[in-house]
């Protein structure tokens, strides 16, 4: 696909706000114009070409190469096109993203997918804390779209999540699905303590039983969960093992909670077929 390739010249000394560089925002500009765009870094402003070497011309795909652990807000509010990171991403990856795809070959920092509303975000390795969570002061975390983390995720994944699909193939930290309002979180690996803390509605789908469930989740027994058929079909074609979830009758142990907060959420622990 034609597009601009940005190669990090060196790991920047301070964090750099990359939100101006999304395919839709740089569409129609020349490479030279993009090179001159200002990027906020701490209390300074840097030109794009002071941070990156540029190749190619702006198009639907944007490629960023190098260790981007200090590159924040990549793909913020993007609506279309794709961003591929051949390395890590900093914090607030894909925040408020509305469409398009972001693929990170490395890991992402905190608050990846916060306020995400649409599109596909895939982190090949790990994600930090507050994955798909609400930004401080906000009432809603992820609000739509699909976010897949092939590795592990930190604490508070899906905090105040409102809608959309969050898939973590590896392990997830404490307080997963805390204050969750709705939507679906699927975890392939182990889940930390206090899963579903203050969860209001929504689904936390686990492949492995947690060490303990909160006492405010009540067991509803082993059930065939028909909605999983629809989810499994929707997930086909996504990266990772959840894409090959059986489309047949899936049985799960269902617990509902958090009874301290309405108690209409569910934790489903999948049983082997």
């Amino acid at each position: 696909m034609p597009g601009l390739r940005l190669t990090l010249q060196a790991v920047p000394p301070e964090r750099v706000d990359l939100s101006p560089l999304t395919p839709d925002r740089i569409a129609g500009r020349s490479r030279a114009e993009v090179a001159a765009l200002p990027l906020a870094s701490g209390n300074r402003s840097l030109r794009v070409d002071a941070v990156f070497k540029l190749a190619g011309d702006p198009g639907p795909e944007l490629v960023i190469e190098g260790d981007g652990s200090r590159l924040d807000r990549i793909g913020e509010a993007m609506t279309q096109g794709s961003i591929r990171l051949r390395g890590n991403a900093g914090a607030w990856l894909g925040v408020g993203m509305c469409g398009g795809t972001i693929e990170v070959e490395g890991s992402a920092g905190a608050y990846a997918g916060s306020g995400m509303q649409g599109g596909l975000l895939h982190v090949h390795q790990h994600a930090g804390d507050f994955l798909a969570a609400a930004a401080p002061g906000d009432h809603q975390g992820m609000r739509g779209g699909v976010l897949v983390v092939s590795g592990n995720a930190g604490a508070r994944a899906g905090d105040r999540m409102r809608r959309g699909t969050l898939i973590i193939d590896g392990d997830v930290g404490d307080c997963c699905a805390s204050r969750m309002v709705a939507g679906t979180i699927a975890v392939g690996g182990a889940v930390g303590r206090n899963a579903g803390l203050a969860m209001r509605r929504g689904t936390l789908l686990l492949r492995r039983p947690p060490a303990a469930l909160l006492p405010t989740f009540n067991d509803c027994g082993v059930q065939v969960v028909p909605i999983l058929r629809l989810l499994a079909r929707a997930w086909r074609g996504l990266p990772g093992p959840f894409a090959s979830l059986s489309a047949g009758d899936l049985r799960a142990r269902r617990s509902m909670g958090d009874l301290a907060n309405g108690g209409r959420g569910e934790i489903l622990i999948l049983l082997p077929d």
Binding site: R163, A182, G183, T184, R201, T203, Q223, V224, V225, P226, I227, L230, L231, A234, R264, E266
Partner: peptide
């Protein structure tokens, strides 16, 4: 009040608890 919804690929489905399981 025990019903729950799920939005999948832009379509909303209702899950209504019934005696044989769940009516989608």
């Amino acid at each position: 009040g025990f019903q729950a919804s799920k939005l999948i690929e832009g379509r909303r489905y209702w899950r209504i608890p019934v005696m044989d399981g769940e009516f989608v």
